[in-house]
Amino acid sequence: MYRALLALALTAATWPVIPPAIVHPWAPPATPYGPGHRGIDLAAPPGTPVRAAAAGRITFAGQVAGQGILTITLPGTTTPPLRTTYEPVHPLVTQGTQVTAGEVVATTAEGPSHCPTGCLHWGLLRGQTYLNPLLLLHRAAPSRLLPVTGVAEAG
């Protein structure tokens, strides 16, 4: 799974709102139905453009319990594929649309929120398992050997 995330992260991946400001961090629950935060909240007042964090296909763009939600399924991330979710939003794309990383796909909407000035909830799932969406942004630097100093040679 992490190999697929790393491969995706090494391709084009971007923050869904710019500038990014994390209001509420990832806090996974201890149990599947336990309390926690299954994504991150980014500061984003209503009307803020929302960008696709990675290229993919829109697999849901609509309302759930009166709140606008957008889901993008990311190809090439093994089975089941990774999906990113964004809420509350006004989708600007329809189900089936292919999008590129950084493409504006929605605007933030007013919604029930614990963020006083509005925010975007950004999630990442593989099947029914929630993951930290910041994994998409991880940029792995190549390894580099450095000289070791201050260590006595074995003799």
Rank of each mutant, 00 (worst) to 15 (best):
Q63I: 08
A65W: 05
H138N: 12
N132C: 07
T14Q: 14
P147S: 09
A61L: 03
T107I: 10
L146D: 14
A140P: 12
T48Q: 09
L42W: 03
A43N: 11
L82C: 03
E110A: 15
T108V: 13
G111R: 01
A9F: 03
H138Q: 13
T85Q: 14
Q67C: 11
P45R: 01
H138S: 12
A30G: 10
D41W: 00
E87C: 04
A27Q: 06
L145R: 13
Q128F: 14
A141N: 13
T84A: 11
T59N: 07
L42D: 07
T71V: 15
L92H: 07
P49R: 08
V64K: 08
P88H: 10
T117V: 12
S143R: 15
E103V: 09
T100I: 11
H37Y: 05
L5D: 04
L10G: 15
S113N: 04
T100E: 11
V17W: 03
A4G: 10
G111K: 02
W122T: 02
A9P: 06
G123L: 07
C119H: 00
C115E: 01
H138E: 09
A44G: 04
A30D: 13
L42N: 08
Q95C: 08
G68P: 02
V89R: 00
L8E: 01
P46I: 08
G118C: 06
W26I: 03
L131H: 02
A152T: 15
Q63D: 10
A4K: 08
G68L: 02
E110K: 14
I72E: 02
P20T: 09
P80Y: 07
P116N: 11
P35Y: 04
P91G: 06
P81E: 12
L134D: 00
R51V: 10
V99G: 06
R38F: 10
T48L: 06
G150W: 06
L6E: 14
V89A: 01
R51W: 07
R83F: 05
P20F: 01
A141P: 08
P16K: 03
A65T: 12
V151D: 13
H114K: 13
A154N: 14
P147E: 02
L134C: 02
H37S: 03
N132T: 04
H114Y: 10
V23I: 12
A152W: 14
E103D: 13
T31S: 12
G39V: 00
I22M: 04
L145P: 11
A43M: 13
T100K: 10
M1E: 11
P147M: 05
V148I: 13
Q98R: 15
N132P: 09
P29M: 06
T71N: 11
T78Q: 14
G123E: 04
P81C: 12
G66H: 05
T78M: 12
S143G: 14
A140R: 14
T84V: 13
P142D: 13
L137M: 09
T108K: 01
L6M: 15
P112D: 11
L124I: 02
A27E: 05
T100Q: 10
R51C: 07
H121W: 07
V50G: 05
T129A: 09
P116E: 08
G66N: 07
L146P: 09
H114P: 10
L134I: 02
P80I: 10
H24N: 13
T107R: 08
G62F: 01
P46Y: 06
V148D: 04
L131P: 00
G62R: 02
I22H: 00
G56Y: 02
A61E: 01
P91Q: 07
R57V: 15
